[in-house]
Every structure is written in C-alpha cells, then in structure tokens.
C-alpha cells in the first residue's frame, strides 16, 4: 500500500482563489503533497490547466467542484459539473444522485462553519434523509484544524454517525485560496493506493476516499493493520467475522515521520497513541520516536469500528496530530447469535 498525501479542498481564480493551478501545484510540491483535488466554487473550467500543471510539477490533480449553494457547501470529486441551482433545502439527495450517476462522490464541506450572512451557505442546512448517501465528511477544515472551534462538532457528528453504523470516511481540507507567506500548517489526507502511480488515476483516488482508505494528519503517517484469523486488513477495510468465530484481532501500529519533517522541527511531536472505538477507548499508550511500533490484541466482542488517534505537541499546544479512518468489524454480536441458535 502506498500512502500519498493529498490536499482535497482548493480554489483558483476560476472561482475566488488567488493562485493559479500551476502556482498552487508548485507550492503543493514544496509541502510534500503528491496530489490535490481542484474544487473551485461552482465551476470546473480550471481543469483546462490541469495537464500542464501536473506535467510540470508531478502533482496529481483530481477533478472536483465545491457546490457553493444557499444551504450548504458540498465537495464533489471525480465528476464533471452537476446541476445544483434547481435544488432546495429538502432536495440534496437528488443532487447527490446526479454526482453519483456521473461517477463521482460527494462530501460535506465544513459542516459547522458560520452560515449566511457571515459566510453565505457555509453552514450545512440541507436535510439529510439517508446518511449512507454521503461519501465523506470534511472533519478537519482550514489550517491548524485541530485548534478550530467549528471542527469540534464536525468530529462529534462523524463519531456519532460511525456509532450509528454508517461507514462514512473523514477527510481534511485546507480550503486553499492562496499560496502566500502564510506559514500556518495544513493537514493532509493520506490516501492508500495499491501502486504509487495510481495517484494519477482520479478513479483510483476517488475509490480509495470512498472506501475510507485514508489517514488525516498534520504530518506523520499512521499505519494500522489488523490481523484477524488468517486475514490482514488495512484502514478502511471491514474485518469479516459474520459467524462470530474469532475472539480477537491483532493490531500492528506504526507512526512514520513525515518525509518533509524538517519544516516542523520540534514544534510537532507525537507523544501518545489512542485506539478509539464504538465502545470507547481500547488502548492509550505513550509514544516516542524511538519505538518501532506497537502490537495490541483487541477483543472483537462488541466492536463495530475502531480508529487510531495520535496526540501530541503542536506549536506549543497539546492536541490531536493525526487520526485514521476506521477499520470496521462485521460480526454477529453474541446476544444476536444466541437468539438465532435457540
């Protein structure tokens, strides 16, 4: 598996961004990004510059758009322009269907930003009748996302949906409008792809995001593999134990320092790893960079999802530095199984 850092929320002068696509890709390369998604507000015309920018910088460009509507902002990836202007606050599923029909996926952008008239349509107000229609949620928005107030309810929304049984991935998005002197740090969405060059295939990137094969991080990459029975599972996978035969799984955890780490120096350091799940924290371990990795046995009873969270020091504060999308468990829970066998 190749984990390629992407920036999934960007703008250019084709909407209200202040850097050209080429300028942004040059900056992305400096930051160590392997790809970006171009998500201009309500247009896709910026893609006419994509081939040249990708060729010069090597940064992969995934086509997308930010539906910048009156009732919410919705990111689309892997689809051409899809119509939004005829939809009301109760109609979002009709809009999502259009994106899905066109081969794309949809994600709710910054669901808890302030709305109109402070930021028009920025707060999500569409009625969602079926959360399984939503392909991802931008849980971390803007630079220094773990310190932003509006990301707290987004994190809680995501966690409650996971607890309700929805398998909705989280992403990060800088909402990148200009490549100026701003030295604030953005988070990356590492996307797990079978081959390194798969990042140039929008379809592969979209597919990986849709299935939650991704890790959100200010820098370090979190590797989590689950070994259950004789099978090996990665982030985004579903541990299959529908018969409830397995009692536990083994988790292999590693923290890989960010390749371009020199820009962080000692201002960012992971000091603790937490394994969270639908039944609460499963593990809470101190971490230092000298460690090779952690191995944990986790009982499967009651587990429907688990994710790894890395905490630590970030610019003088103590906060979340990275988190994985879940590994899910598909298993008859014990009391249900008993009911069937009686």
């Amino acid at each position: 598996m190749n984990w390629i850092p992407f920036e999934l929320h960007t703008h250019t002068p084709h909407s209200d961004g202040r850097h050209s696509l080429l300028e942004m890709c040059r900056e992305a390369k400096k930051l160590g990004l392997g790809g970006i998604a171009l998500t201009d507000h309500n247009t896709v015309s910026g893609m006419t510059e994509a081939e040249a920018a990708q060729e010069e910088t090597g940064v992969a460009i995934v086509p997308g758009m930010e539906w910048t509507t009156f009732y919410g902002h919705m990111l689309t990836l892997g689809a051409p322009y899809c119509e939004w202007r005829d939809l009301g606050p109760e109609d979002i599923h009709r809009g999502i269907e259009r994106v899905h029909q066109a081969g794309g996926i949809v994600g709710i952008a910054h669901p808890y930003s302030l709305g109109s008239p402070i930021c028009t349509g920025c707060h999500w107000e569409y009625t969602i009748k079926d959360w399984s229609d939503i392909d991802y949620i931008e849980v971390w928005h803007e630079v220094m996302p773990s310190y932003k107030n509006h990301n707290v309810p987004a994190w809680n929304l995501w966690t409650s949906l996971l607890n309700e049984g929805y398998r909705i991935p989280a992403t990060a998005g800088r909402d990148w409008h200009h490549s100026g002197q701003d030295d604030s740090w953005s988070a990356f969405t590492y996307i797990g792809l079978p081959e390194p060059d798969d990042r140039y295939s929008a379809e592969s990137v979209v597919q990986a995001i849709r299935r939650g094969r991704s890790v959100i991080s200010m820098g370090p990459m979190l590797h989590v593999e689950a070994l259950a029975g004789d099978a090996r599972y990665f982030i985004g996978d579903i541990v299959e134990d529908s018969a409830g035969r397995l009692s536990s799984m083994r988790l292999l955890i590693q923290v890989q320092p960010f390749a371009a780490a020199e820009r962080y120096g000692d201002r960012m350091q992971v000091t603790k790893l937490v394994v969270e799940s639908n039944i609460g924290e499963l593990a809470d371990r101190p971490w230092n960079e000298q460690e090779a990795g952690i191995e944990l046995y986790v009982p499967l009873e009651g587990i429907r999802w688990l994710r790894l969270k890395a905490m630590g020091v970030l610019l003088g504060g103590w906060t979340t530095i990275a988190f994985t999308n879940p590994i899910y468990v598909n298993r008859e829970q014990k009391n249900e199984t008993e009911g069937e066998t009686e």
Binding site: T12, P13, H14, S15, D16, D40, H41, N42, T43, S45, G46, T68
Partner: peptide, 21 residues
C-alpha cells in the same frame, strides 16, 4: 460561472478562450 466577490465583472466566452470560470 464566476463565484467571486468583486461587484464589477466582465466576462467573455469564445471558441478558443474564456474568462476564468
């Protein structure tokens, strides 16, 4: 489309070129 803030805008569309957006 031109989703941006300036309140005075001029756009052109032609076969080989178009304004941003």
């Amino acid at each position: 489309s031109a989703h941006r803030h300036p309140p005075e805008q001029r756009h052109t569309l032609a076969v080989g070129s178009a304004s941003p957006g």
